[in-house]
Write a protein that binds this DNA or RNA. Structure first.
Lengths: 170, 170
DNA sequence: ATGATTTCGTTTGCTACCAAACGGACTATA
DNA sequence: TATAGTCCGTTTGGTAGCAAACGAAATCAT
């Protein structure tokens, strides 16, 4: 997990040796460690980059963008479905939607047939925003993986997909 | 980014078609989109799993664990170096260290030669914790990538490393 | 039907995270 | 040695994120 594990310098070997020393006889699964820690570091780097670049111009966080995007593609949704599709807890989604509502990007409506339920939909301003933003965001995504060939992007996505399935399994 | 993009069902095609429809004539870099969104989803899944499993038993967050781990491997460090190695802003690190200090895992010391500076070191309790925790955490890491061969783990780590370098570049 | 249970979204209390502002401590230039 | 500038870690103010508690609404069981 620390930055040093990915530097192409002798400290990497130092780090591995130090870790093994701390561990004594216990065995160390270095390949798994590096794979998992790189997933996390890549996600952090990619998210920070997006939020500082494209997203900040539109006053959106990563979660806010995701929510807007899902609503744009799928249209008006009930909050429970929206939370699942955005991979957020329902409590978190309440807050994200509240922020988006304050910014004027979405609106809530109560469902007549079941008054516990609430749907969320984009406003016109929300539609304008996501339509202006998404092409730029997609370019940014391309930038983030510009060192990878198409095949490598697909490999990366597929390997990650298998990790997601494993980690999400009950 | 939404969950549906990774389901092996016709909705994936629906999603791609819907997105393209919303985009009109603008081109869509689907491979990059899927690669980037899977990085983020995998990181979230893996982190959640760790925090609900291994880490919760020790009362640690992901960031708290990382900090403990770095201090264990490298020994006492100044906060600026620690923040960089843990990939956290200095403000965030202050909070994480504060929490770890409250739990009795680390202690701070002022540097005599420069009284602005502060070092952080593990306490005995912190050492016991990380020594008990790390082998379990490494097993968990193996679990998260158990569907991948050794070669695939290395490929994944290498592809991600290239993304990290790109995203971290100024 | 009515009481108990379940199912909604929201609220609450907490940690995490960042950027920017801050104040104390060092340093360089005069 | 002043004093202006720089460099520390901390604080502040904001969003994000979760789990658990909550109140209202629907449904189930009797």
């Amino acid at each position: 997990m620390p930055a040093v594990l990915n530097r192409a310098d002798p400290r990497l070997l130092d780090a591995e040796r130090l870790i093994q020393q701390r561990l004594g006889d216990r065995r160390l699964d270095f390949d798994s460690m590096l794979a998992v820690s790189n997933i996390y570091r890549a996600a952090t780097a990619v998210r920070r980059r997006a939020e500082k670049g494209v997203l900040s111009e539109f006053g959106l966080s990563w979660g806010g963008f995701t929510t807007l995007w899902v609503l744009w593609v799928w249209g008006e949704m009930q909050t429970a479905d929206l939370a699942e599709e955005c991979d957020l807890s329902k409590g978190t989604l309440t807050g994200v939607v509240k922020t988006l509502e304050r910014r004027g990007f979405v609106k809530r409506s109560q469902v007549a047939s079941d008054r516990r339920r609430v749907t969320v939909a984009l406003t016109d301003a929300g539609i304008d925003t996501i339509e202006g933003l998404f092409p730029r965001f997609n370019l940014y995504e391309g930038e983030m993986v510009r060192e990878l060939s198409i095949t490598e992007k697909q490999t990366l996505a597929e390997l990650l997909r298998r990790v997601i399935v494993t980690a999400d399994a009950p």
